[in-house]
Nucleic acid binder design. Structure first.
Length: 624
RNA sequence: GGGCCCGUAGUAUAGCCUGGACAGAAUGGGAGCUUGCGGAGCUUCAGACCGGGGUUCGAAUCCCCGCGGGCCCGCCA
């Protein structure tokens, strides 16, 4: 268990036992208190409010606090003071030693309070075949988050249409949550479910069968051109419209075209995913689940959860809990809802999951509540673990994004624009710098900075909130931005590199090139040992306390699927580091012990920043 | 009409689930910091909980009533 967590629980236990004993003695009911992290560093590192205790025992908070201070605290506590109705605890060197020890570990965060997962386990592999296989073997047994995967379903663009700005949120939020689970050592399946049905697909097929001179699709722009051309042709020809309707009803008979649409769409999507560094484990298509969809509709009819109306429509019976929704059109074709039903079963069958999360825009909230309710009524054992996270819209200053309204901002264009902006900024700040490939990444530095800024700008906003996107102003590089975090990491790297270069007879950071999978690569053998006696100033203590929070933040994100907490954390670490940097010379301190101590602090910080950025899908650069 | 979500400095944002000390950063504004490891930086000042009730020793946080904005409410996804 990690230092902060074990410290908190040790302190909590100590406090609880004293409170319970004192309550027993006075014959009163015991009152709960909770150990919290102090908000003001001047008032301790951990605090225990005692107001409720005071009012229960009819004493002043100060009396109770003073009384509690005399408790025999665990040795991670250096001092306890009664201040303003709080017991403020000041942590000892033992605590900071422990933090320094664990935070430099490349697997830091893996062994969380919940984790049965061993930190030293050899196989660093993540969502490989082994996990999928083992998940299947576990079927029928108890479902555990450490053994049964979490399925994350995100991105989900429409084949046949280009990806636009609106797709970015689901795509990167899902990706970050998956990364967090990965780092925790828990199995995860990254799913991108593509709806290759819909009216727009029928339109494309009609066009493919009607026109010969259609543009070749290689990217988003050509895909959009393709779609717009076809749309226009169909609009002005009623015969084509009718044909489109027929195609939609008999999609199965157009398998060849369907395959082609999937292929060319994927070519375009893949360019964006590669640019964003987003990957998937499984990409099921809606049409492959069609027969299952119909079977589910029948099941609902049999169980009295749906009924057929005179015009042939089949509709759910979810009232009064929720409003009803259509399962099958009057012409007998299935809908999004129907195939989502089949998809749920498909997921459960293929990956018996501990949790499933779907990330979409919040406008689909009702849809997914209806889906979950129906799954519950159908008696699916996984229904309660079948979750949905609806995120706020990304809107332009003028209004909602829509492919049809023509006010589209292609994802491809956004990505290009942020890269260009980053390049401009880089040249302005550092005219001599070249936009060279970063040693750890496939991207150039400007791309890594630009993409990072784009992702960070979207990720840092709480899920539920809408984002008004100004393409020009959105991407920032100063203050609460990814560039600030990357810059802190660069500075940490620069110190360690300089130290390695100064060290006589030591090999330089020769493994810098191969350090992609091991952010800790150059920390190890080169550093002198941590001094037994630490001499920490305030900036160092605050930084170490921040580093100690990492496992909890990671756990929080993996549990709540709220990546913005990680952004908040990353910026606070970077800030604590730059404050430390300003007042604590690392390579030229007063004595060797201090130098060693600070080198370890820098190495730990660098590691935590790299891990955090890694989860956020932002490159931890060594130069910029 | 009904349901869900949001409302915090000029702007944009965290804290709300699980109540606790002067509401935390950012940007913009004021004042400083360049002879030490990268100034995309550091230090510092001013500036905010939509309104009204309630619960509580204590409310940005929980409950109720409003106000403002967004989304959704059977053959779109």
């Amino acid at each position: 268990m990690y230092a902060l967590h074990s410290t908190k629980s040790a302190v909590q236990t100590a406090a609880d036992s004293v409170i319970r004993a004192s309550a027993q003695k006075s014959g009163q009911n015991s009152v709960e208190t909770t150990v919290i992290k102090s908000r003001n560093p001047a008032l301790g590192d951990l605090s225990i409010p005692v107001f409720s205790l005071a009012s229960a025992q009819k004493k002043t908070p100060q009396q109770i606090a003073e009384q509690l201070c005399n408790t025999k605290w665990p040795d991670v506590v250096a001092e306890a003071k009664a201040e303003g109705g709080f017991v403020n605890l000041y942590l000892s060197e033992i605590f900071f030693h422990a933090v320094l020890d664990e935070a430099a570990d490349a697997q830091y965060g893996r062994q969380t309070p919940m984790g049965e997962v061993q930190r030293d386990e050899k196989n660093g592999n993540k969502t490989g075949k082994t996990l999928k296989k083992s998940a299947r073997e576990e079927k029928g047994k108890e479902i555990k988050p450490t053994e049964n995967p979490t399925i994350l379903e995100y991105s989900q663009p429409n084949p046949g249409k280009p990806m636009h700005l609106g797709h970015i949120r689901s795509t990167i939020i899902g990706d970050v949550c998956a990364n967090a689970l990965d780092l925790l050592g828990r199995p995860v399946v990254r799913l991108n479910y593509l709806n290759d049905r819909g009216a727009h697909i029928a339109e494309l097929i009609t066009a493919m069968e009607t026109f010969k001179d259609l543009p070749k699709v290689t990217d988003e722009k050509s895909l959009l051109a393709y779609y717009v051309k076809i749309k226009a042709e169909i609009e002005k020809d009623p015969a084509l419209k009718e044909k489109t309707r027929q195609v939609l009803e008999h999609l199965k008979d157009h398998e060849k075209q369907l395959v082609k649409i999937r292929e060319m769409s994927w070519v375009a999507f893949k360019r964006n995913y590669d640019a964003l560094g987003v990957k998937f484990d499984d990409i099921p298509f809606e049409t492959t689940l069609e027969s299952d969809s119909r079977a589910r509709v029948q099941e609902c009819l049999d169980k009295g959860l749906a009924k057929q109306e005179p015009d042939g429509t089949i509709i759910t019976q979810l009232e009064p809990e929720l409003s009803n929704t259509v399962l099958l059109r009057s012409n007998g074709t299935p809908l999004y809802f129907t195939s989502d039903l089949a998809l749920a079963d498909w997921k459960w069958q293929k990956y018996p999951f501990s949790q499933s999360w779907i990330f979409t825009a919040a406008e689909q909230n009702l849809h997914f509540r209806q889906l979950q309710l129906l799954l519950t009524k159908m008696g699916r054992p996984f229904a309660s673990r079948y979750g949905h996270k609806g995120h706020g819209l990304i809107r332009l200053t003028e209004g909602k994004l829509s492919t049809r309204a023509g006010r589209v901002i292609l994802l491809e264009d956004i990505i290009h624009a942020v890269e260009e902006e980053a390049k401009t900024q880089m040249t302005a700040r550092n005219p001599d710098a070249k936009d060279q490939p970063d040693s750890k990444s496939d991207l150039t530095i400007a791309k890594a900075v630009g993409i990072g800024a784009l992702k960070y700008g979207v990720l840092k906003v709480k899920l539920e909130k809408d984002i008004t996107f100004d393409p020009k102003a959105e991407v920032q590089f100063e203050g609460d931005t990814s560039a600030y975090i990357q810059y802190a990491h660069v500075r940490a790297c620069a110190i360690l590199e300089k130290f390695a270069a100064q060290a006589p007879g030591k090999e330089k950071a020769k493994n810098a090139k191969s350090s992609k999978n091991n952010p800790n690569a150059q920390n190890g053998p080169n550093l002198p040992t941590v001094p037994t006696k630490l001499d920490l100033n305030d900036s160092e203590k605050q930084l170490l306390l921040k580093l100690a929070e990492f496992p909890d933040v990671l756990e929080y994100v993996a549990t709540t699927m709220q990546p913005h907490a990680l952004c908040e954390y990353a910026i606070s670490v970077a800030k604590a580091f730059t404050s430390f940097y300003a007042v604590s010379p690392v390579l030229t301190p007063e004595n060797e012990d201090l130098k060693s101590q600070r080198l370890h602090i820098v190495a730990s910080t660098k590691n935590v920043l790299a891990l955090t950025l890694g989860v956020l899908g932002i490159d931890a650069l060594e130069k910029m």
